[in-house]
Every structure is written in structure tokens, then in C-alpha cells.
Design a protein around this nucleic acid. Sequence first.
RNA 1: UGGGGUGUCGCCAAGUGGCAAGGCAGCGGGUUUUGAUCCCGCCAUUCGCAGGUUCGAAUCCUGCCACCCCAGCCA
Length: 552
Amino acid sequence: MSTESRSNFLKTQIQADLDGQVMGQLVTRFPPEPNGYLHLGHAKSITVNFELAKQFGGRCHLRFDDTNPEKESQVFIEAIQDDVRWLGYEWHGEVRFASSYFQQLYDWALHLIDHGLAYVCDLSAEEAREYRGSLTEAGRDSPYRTRSPEENRQLFTGMRAGEFPEGSRVLRAKIDMASPNINLRDPILYRIRNAHHHQTGGDWPIYPTYDYAHGQEDAIEGVTHSICTLEFEDHRPLYDWFIEHLPVPSRPRQIEFARLNTSYTVTSKRKLKQLVDSGAVSGWDDPRMPTLAGLRRRGYPPAAIRHFCEEVGTSRSDSVVDVAMLESSVRNHLNESAPRAMAVLNPLALTLTNLSQPETLSVANHPGNEAMGTREVPLTPELLIDADDFREEANKKYKRLVIGKRVRLRGAYVIEAERCDHNASGEVVRVYARIIEGTLGEDPADGIKAKGVIHWVSASSGVPAEVRRYDRLFSDPNPGKSDDVLAVLNPDSLRVIDTAVLEPSLAHAQPEQVFQFEREGYFIADRFDHSGGKPVFNMTIGLRDTWSAVNA
RNA sequence: UGGGGUGUCGCCAAGUGGCAAGGCAGCGGGUUUUGAUCCCGCCAUUCGCAGGUUCGAAUCCUGCCACCCCAGCCA
């Protein structure tokens, strides 16, 4: 599972930049806008930035890019910090805010004005769009482009003083309305917004745009490499333009990489919101959601997510990673870390005809890790096994319980089925089996080995529980391509099982504890709904299953 | 038909002129008190296509093709 030595273009670039350069150490940053919950795509960005800093002995900042108060809020600021920490990262120093640089940004805007590099424009949004031209046609200069620095300064300070209504004016950089790169056609630096800001309150009636603010925020913090996604590539000339024309304290470099896309999942905020608003999921932290809060509640270990992000690599080509890769990482991590236990999801009664007294068995918590210890499991005359693990008759390929045949009860004895009872509709309701003496930890003395191993739970001391089985939220590998995500939902993405019975030790599980229910999969005690009195487990992921596929 | 990007195995992805890593998926086989894990083996004469340069090209050159991004006072 080691991927540390894997190279990618970012590491190569950074290494080259660091070698023989003045800059001594790498500084990166994760700069979310606090306007939504973090998801798998953000996890990629987080690992890229934090791992790079770790690998090169540098540091990584967490900075909220809060330049648009109308869409942001304090709840996201807290949720995002929780998610980043949960993923396993701690940022360098205090949490930072773009908003704490508003004064500096404003002063630098004045600097641009004084140098004739920015002007106040009175064009309406619609007019500005017309003046901007199109992809194939050059734009035209705004009639306000020639205002003097003095007039611009007066107008801009007026904007800052709240003298003008929203939308009446903006501050623009004076670059080139004929540039083939539309981002250079006199981009907007400031807009008027009479909005309450979650950090600065009513201090500012004007707010800087991303294009103007981001690079300067980086420069203020001494960020050396400002890593972002591909769609910002066209903005880089602008990013560099500000850095060149402003007396900034450092010269950060922007590098873009391809965002992470994963099959069977959507990460568009609009689509995720649609899922929540429509009730298709129970909320932003529904275990089927690709949000970090959802993945957490689902039981995906942060280390598995980190490993996945490293494993898929970092490149500049658009791609869609098979979600099976994430699932594989989750299984790998859980296989090692999750203690084993038994739970019967679809119970069928089984009577042990020759067990007179209950026994207490000691069972290993992990087949490959003795250090994880053992636990006690009660064996009683009345047991519960999974209905799928019994057939009255079957071919030789069926490795479970069949009348007249043997299987081993996991951690206990080999048994042989004798007969079964049926109900009025002919369904099997109870199986009778006898224990083969002397088979605790031993094969049968008569040489007739068990066909397989099945899990079980004591009917009398087992603990009823609610188990939620999850499957992929979408039936389409590329749900994001669909206009209506609700149309491609997998109708079986959640199945609530209220018949499950757990072995007694599981009643002591703490919320967020993950177990492997043997032969079923990995399950986590729900972070919110689980309690000793009423156990609730969410299926994280099933065990790899080559048998059902062969049998299909 | 403006500008900026990207094309290496079913899905990711190394590779930076010297003879195509790795992971996921898949397929065989072995071990196994989880049909799990683990272990072994197989899985690109070929790098979007076509030319060219070179003793030698995924890597250099030329031309084509495909796909992605950009016309928010969003980020």
C-alpha cells in the first residue's frame, strides 16, 4: 500500500523550484470558501496540499476564502475545520481568513488606481457583458476606462464609504479589452455589496473578487505554491499580473492539477443540494453522500481516503477514477483494523440437539492479529444463523449447511444438520443439528470434514439491532452527466434491516466503532443513532465477494 | 471559426531519446475455522492518428483528430 515514492508533476516542479532557489521551504494552503460542506473532491485537494508540505518539510495553511458574504456562513467554517481535522490534518498556525486581509487588499487597490492600473466603471452588469465581447470577438473599452487616477480614487473611496448602491459601480483592472484571454478583459476587482459578513460584520460595503484577492492572500501568507484546479489555468496570467504590479511581500506561483472525479458519485454542490432538498438522502451527512461528513458516518477510515487520494495520483488530465479503487482502499484498511464479530442479519432458528448446557467460548478478535485479543461468545442450545446459510439440499459447490452435511460454527464446533421444520407456506423455520463431539479447534475424528464455516449468534443472549445496508447511491456510473440526478438514483441504495441480531459483545460498541461482521462486511456503530440500548449499525462496505458473481 | 489544456492496458497512472513501473478491475492456481484476508501467476511488441528526425522515439519535429475549460459584479 506504499505510494510515497510515486512521482507526479507537482513534486517534480516543486523540487525544481526549491533546488537552488531563494525560497527555503514549501508553503501551501487549502483555501475553501465557507459556502458548503467538504466532499471527496476537497479531500483530494487537502491531501495534495498537506502531503506536499509534509514531504518537503514545509507547512500548509487553512485559509477561508471568504470574499462573498452572501453565500457564506459560520456553520461551514466550523464544519470544514472539523472535516479537515477528521481527515487527519492540522494546519500551520491559526486558521486564516481572506477577510482579515481586506484592508491590505483595499490599500493595494488604491495603489493600482494611483498607478493608472485600475478604474471605477459605472457600466451595468448587462452592459459590461456586452462590452466584454465574445470568445471570438474582442471586447470594447468601457467609456469609464479613461477616468483619471484622482477621479477613480475619489469614486473608489466613495464606494468604500458606502455612498453608492449595490451594482452601481465596480473597480476594474485596466488590462486589455482585446485580449484573447477573456479573464484579462479588464476584470472586476471590487463590487458593492451591502451584506453582513460573517467575519467583518458591516465593516465593508465592497468586497474583492476571487481573481483580485487570491494571489495577494497567498503573497501575504508567504505561500510559495498556490495549487488549484485546472479551470483556473486561464486565470493564471491575471494572478501573475497582480503579483507583478503590486508591492506584495512574496511571489507565489500558481500550479493547476486535474480535480478528482469518481465514478458513481457527484460532487457538484448544486446536485448534492438537490439530493438533500428532495429527501433522496437524509442530509449532508447521510452515509451515502460523498461529503466527508457522509463518508465519516459511513465508516470510511480517514486513512483509507488519504491513501486513495495518493494512490490515484495527481496529473493534469481529466479523468474519472473507478470508485472501486476507493472501496478497495477502505477494505484494505478495515481488514487490518476492524475487530471481527458475528451478527446474523436474516435469522433462521437452529437448535443444537445435543447441547445440554450453554458454553462460553473464547473467540479471536482478528484472525491475523493476536494482539487484538479474544472475546467471550455464548453458545446456547438455541441459535440463529443466516437463512442463506442453510439449504435442505444443494450441490457440492454449496459450502454451507445442508441436511446430512457438516459445517463449522465459526469459533465453535462442527455441526451436522439433521432435519428442519417448515411453516404453512413451506418455508424453513427451524433447523435441527447436532454437534460433532471433540471438534472445538479440531477437525472431526472420523475424517469427515466440515464443508465450510458459517456465523451464528445465540438466540437467547443475542442483541436485536437495526442494521442499515448501503449500496451505491446511483445506478449510473456517471450521474453527474445527467441533468436530473434524481432520475439515476439506485432504488436499493439503502435497506434498513430490523431483524438483525448481534452477538452480545457488540452491545458494548461505542458510536463510530467499526467491526467486521464475519462473512458480511464492515459495519460502524452510527455516530448519532447508536446506543447500547438500541444498537444501530451502518454497513460501511461488504466483504469482497467472488462467490455471488460466479453464481449469478 | 479566439484563447488555454489533455490524450500511455477496461479505470487511474509512472515514464523527460536507450528497448512500457505500480494500483484498481479481471482471469487462473495455492493456503485458509470468514466463498474474506494472504500468497503465486497471467493481463500494452505498444503509448490518439499520420508523416518526419535518429543507430534508436511514448519521449524531438510537422500535420491532423478527439475530449475538457473560459464570455458571474461565483470561487
